[in-house]
Design a protein around this nucleic acid. Structure first.
Lengths: 297, 297
DNA sequence: CGTTAACTGTGTATGGTCTACACAACGTAT
DNA sequence: ATACGTTGTGTAGACCATACACAGTTAACG
């Protein structure tokens, strides 16, 4: 919440980076952007993104709907900040891997975890590559894994993008696959619709149970193919230009530094605690309002 | 529009398959589901999915909002049918390829084309694997390409799923990358935010221009890696079980049959013509209503 | 043929969404 | 001390999906 320069950034993005211009005069602010986003995330966690409305968020905080607009220029801003809060920071454990295959696997699983923790992330429409700190941190973590690799910068970015896409795809589809594993729609009812005449290749596949998850999950399969493809390319590159490994300035590669880890851990703990406190505060506000309503009536 | 059995399918899906129960009594219907979906698609094509409301669709057809609910149980049904109409059928040219790599490339590009033709497809939230004819036809076409391959059925399905995911991802991200090629947000403004201290790997990549599309597009890269990964796996499978190629009943693999092609082509032409006619009809309705309004006032 | 029951398109109404705008209270800069 | 920007609030408008009651239309059944 620095009183930074607004710049020409969209309001939402400026907020995400903490460089939004802050007011000097006027009454003390009773709300905060963090608190608002936190309440919104909390609602989305329990009741889904559709339950997040300006009214519901304001209500959870015990303020009026319009008060939120003093902090957020439109609901889109709030959504953007929710996304940022929802993805969070990549776990540092990604850096513990000592080969890129393992590293990317950790990265991938961590990304999936984020979607599992906040499924509503998938309901936020994509409006372009998110240019916010946490999202950049994920990209950074992915690039770090590939740092020792003979890929050139653009290829590394492409590789991370590829993986993040597949991760989102898995989360998206798996979300509705349910416990049945395969198609969520009455498979029996479809059986007579999917005739071998109309679907010569799909019908036998359906009959053979290719859609009922027995062995490797379809996404695990895809993920492994992607890794294989990257590996083939990396080998090729390595053969082509053996010493082409262009690492960033080693001085800057301090992500594994223990003090950094500790600092980040502390930050994370503090955040968790804060979140918890805000939750309790909201509950308190809610009960207070209930009592007030009872007294009124 | 057969008077088929409703079954226990969700209304929208039954409609998509043309097996929704049709009424026997009552006044002649003045609208049709096809007409409604067509109008909705037309609106989405020109003004985006957000411009599609029950009111706007009804208005385009010259009827009241509520009349649509005699054909569609909820807006979700309409959205589902729009998706089905939007993806359409895969082009038969996919079958012209004589090796799977080429075939998947055609399949992929065709899928991308569908997204390019109807970008609003990306705005439709995914609510599970779409169990509708056209979507199944795409899966079928993908499986057909892999028919001569030593992959087992589940692996083929996984491969197609993998590709469709990447295709959607590319369409999704590329949609907002705009003509600048890279990040859509002021790159210069971000330059001072993305410090090498905070983003040791991303910052140099940004500076090196890894995000400004020079060479191969990031998605082309990803696509090629996927193909490479599949190729490696296929080779492995081929070595492991040489004769394991399990094709479906060859009698059923008639998709390349010329008569089928012709028939499908005709259907396609007729559809196009119909669409055109409906468009004109709508325009006429619109003008008529304008005139009526003028007369009233 | 007459009656009945189902179905049509319509009009009205409800509860929800986001947000523009005017207001009085407040606090800092001048 | 005054002026001005900012605060949270209340009201209101423009949309949205859709539940429900209505009169007119058609096919099925006796």
């Amino acid at each position: 919440m620095d009183t930074g320069t607004d710049g020409d950034l969209p309001r939402g993005i400026a907020l995400a980076w903490g460089v939004a211009a802050n007011p000097q005069r006027g009454p003390r602010r009773e709300l905060s952007i963090e608190g608002i986003v936190d309440a919104a995330v909390s609602i989305a966690d329990s009741d889904g993104l559709s339950a997040v409305s300006m009214a519901s968020v304001a209500n959870a905080l015990g303020f009026t709907t319009m008060s939120l607009y003093r902090y957020v220029s439109a609901k889109d801003d709030l959504t953007l900040l929710m996304q940022e809060a929802g993805v969070g920071l990549p776990p540092l454990s990604i850096g513990d891997s000592d080969n890129w295959r393992d590293g990317l696997t950790r990265w991938y699983r961590a990304f999936l975890d984020a979607y599992r923790a906040h499924p509503w992330l998938l309901d936020i429409p994509i409006e372009g590559p998110p240019s916010t700190p946490n999202n950049f941190a994920w990209m950074d973590a992915g690039l770090a894994v590939l740092a020792d690799t003979p890929l050139d910068p653009a290829e590394r970015v492409s590789a991370v993008l590829l993986l993040s896409g597949h991760s989102r795809w898995e989360a998206q589809v798996a979300r509705f696959a349910g416990e049945t594993g395969g198609t969520p729609v009455p498979l029996e009812a479809l059986a007579e619709l999917v005739t071998p005449e109309q679907f010569p290749f799909l019908a036998p596949a359906l009959a053979s149970g290719a859609f009922s998850a027995d062995g490797v999950s379809p996404f695990e399969f895809g993920f492994l193919r992607i890794l294989d493809g990257l590996e083939a390319h990396i080998r090729e590159r390595a053969a082509g230009r053996p010493g082409a490994t262009s690492k960033p300035d080693p001085d800057l590669a301090f992500a594994k530094d223990e003090r950094v880890r500790n600092a980040r851990d502390k930050v994370r703990d503090a955040e968790a605690k804060l979140r918890d406190l805000r939750q309790k505060e909201r509950e308190a506000v809610g009960k207070a309002r209930e009592r007030a309503v009872k007294l009124d009536s």
